[in-house]
Computed example of a mutant assay.
Amino acid sequence: MKEDYYDILGISKNATAAEIKKAYRKKALEHHPDKNPGNTKSEEMFKKSAEAYEVLSNADKKARYDQFGHAAFEGAGGFGGGGMNMDDIFSQFGDIFGSAFGGGGGFSGFGGFSGGGQRRVKGSNLRIRVKLTLEEVANGVEKKVKVRRKVQAEGVTYKTCSTCAGRGQVTKITNTILGRMQTATTCNVCGGSGEILDKRPSDADAQGLRIEEETVSIKIPAGVEEGMQLKVPGKGNEAPGNSVPGDLLVAIETKDHDTLKREGDNLHYDLYVSISEAVLGTSKEIDAVGGKVRIKLEPGIQSGKILRLRGKGISSINGYGSGDLLVHVNVWTPKELNKEQKEFFERMSGNDNFEPKPEKSDKSFFEKVKDMFS
């Protein structure tokens, strides 16, 4: 079971953005690979801290995590879903380390950096939208989408950047009243990759890249909601030289269902019955995400009655089972009557059996709403 992000950083759920950043910097510096060379436990803690910070420092992801826990990012992979790597950490959070480790946040010994401090550049992310039906949301689905992404052209070669000597960074020494200060910045010639274009095929652009269409499989877990974002690691654009690909970010959209309305993990269905069906009782076939289901209405059922079909709703993204299908019974009153029908109801007017006699078990509208949300 994955550790709680708040526990990893040693903070409470009420921590401010500044407190979250401070806690992460403390953990990152404590377990930084330059301070703990060859220590796999420190490396793992370094990655866990970065993953926790990536989620908790983002207001939207933090809100989803607080509501759904780790299940909010299941199927996403990469940041916000496990599988952290050093290239992601230093490309996104290197500025947090400041000058604590040579000025650039880099490190040596393993991961995406060489002994000389070369940083592997990460390609840009791609973003797409995927629209799901209610059935796909309820059961989970695997989607195959075509993505046009930049990849290194076949036959392209790169050579070491002479400006930074392959390190991806250039250092500058400045004399101050406090002494000589050394700072490191990303090389503006190679963009931090440490390499520049050597041979370029005819079908490649100025960076040695070309556009290629690829079919990508996306596993979408059951219970996702509109606005959620999944990540497919390594399926974004590639970058020149010794780089790592960006990610494919998948925004979830949902289609409206004809008869079912979603509310959290529960579904709602409006069932209309005639006066005679309400009086005599009947059985009805209604829509559910798994297909049609038949329900029985007892004689004398009242308009506004809510029937609960347990487990017929949406699967919880937290893995806590499924919600319910709530059937709202509405007795349909005809607006026009023929002579015979009108005479019948006139005879029944004032009849003791047709007078409203609500029982204690017949809940008011407000009580029904309260029960529905409890």
Results as ranks from 00 to 15, higher is better:
Ile314Val: 13
Ala278Lys: 02
Glu355Ala: 07
Ser303Lys: 05
Phe366Met: 14
Ser283Glu: 13
Phe345Val: 12
Ser349Ile: 12
Pro334Cys: 11
Glu277Leu: 03
Ala251Ile: 00
Phe365Ile: 15
Gly311Trp: 08
Lys342Glu: 14
Glu359His: 15
Asp362Cys: 03
Phe365Gly: 04
Ser303Leu: 06
Val327Arg: 11
Leu267Arg: 09
Gln302Leu: 10
Asp324Leu: 03
Met348Val: 04
Thr333Tyr: 08
Glu336Pro: 02
Gly321Phe: 04
Thr333Asp: 10
Lys339Val: 12
Lys368Asn: 15
Val250Ile: 14
Lys339Gln: 08
Gly323Trp: 00
Phe365Asp: 14
Phe354Tyr: 15
Val293Ile: 15
Leu307Lys: 08
Ser364Cys: 07
Gly281Glu: 05
Gly304Gln: 08
Ser349Leu: 05
Phe344Tyr: 15
Arg310Tyr: 09
Asp287Arg: 01
Tyr320Cys: 08
His268Tyr: 14
Glu336His: 00
Lys360Gly: 10
Ser276Thr: 10
Leu280Ala: 08
Asp362Ala: 05
Tyr272Gln: 12
Ser361Thr: 15
Thr333Ala: 11
Phe345Arg: 10
Val369Gln: 13
Arg294Gln: 10
Lys342Asn: 11
Glu359Leu: 15
Ile317Ser: 07
Val369Gly: 02
Ser361Phe: 03
Ser316His: 09
Glu298Gln: 13
Leu297Ser: 03
Ser322Gly: 05
Leu260Phe: 02
Asp265Pro: 00
Tyr269Cys: 10
Glu343Cys: 07
Gly291Ile: 00
Ile286Val: 13
Gly291Trp: 04
Met372Val: 01
Ala288Asp: 00
Ile252Met: 10
Ile301Asp: 03
Trp332Leu: 09
Val289Asn: 04
Ser283Met: 08
Leu249Glu: 01
Ile286Ala: 04
Glu285Asp: 03
Gly313Trp: 07
Val293Glu: 03
Lys339Pro: 00
Glu285Ala: 11
Leu271His: 13
Gln302Lys: 14
Lys261Val: 13
Ala251Met: 00
Ile286Pro: 13
Tyr269Phe: 12
Leu260Ser: 00
Trp332Cys: 04
Ser283Pro: 06
Phe344Trp: 14
Thr282Asn: 03
Ile275Pro: 02
Leu326Tyr: 11
Gly350Tyr: 09
Met372Asn: 02
Ser283Cys: 03
His257Cys: 11
Ser274Phe: 01
Tyr320Phe: 02
Gly290Ala: 12
Lys339Asp: 13
Ile317Cys: 10
Asp256Thr: 06
Asp352Val: 14
Gly300Ser: 11
Lys335Ile: 09
Thr333His: 09
Lys312Arg: 12
Phe345Glu: 01
Lys296Pro: 05
Ser276Gln: 15
Glu285Pro: 01
Leu337Glu: 04
Val327Gly: 09
Leu297Met: 07
Phe373Pro: 01
Glu340Lys: 15
Lys284Ala: 12
Asp265Trp: 06
Asp256Lys: 14
Val369Glu: 09
Ile306Asp: 03
Asp371Gln: 06
Val273Cys: 08
Asp270Trp: 01
Glu263Arg: 08
Lys284Asn: 09
Gln341Thr: 04
Val279Ile: 12
His257Pro: 14
Arg347Met: 15
Val369Asp: 04
Ser361Pro: 01
Ile306Cys: 08
Arg310His: 08
Lys312Thr: 01
Lys370Asn: 12
Arg262Ile: 13
Ser349Cys: 10
Gly304Thr: 06
Lys357Gln: 12
Lys255Tyr: 13
Tyr320Asp: 12
Glu343Asp: 11
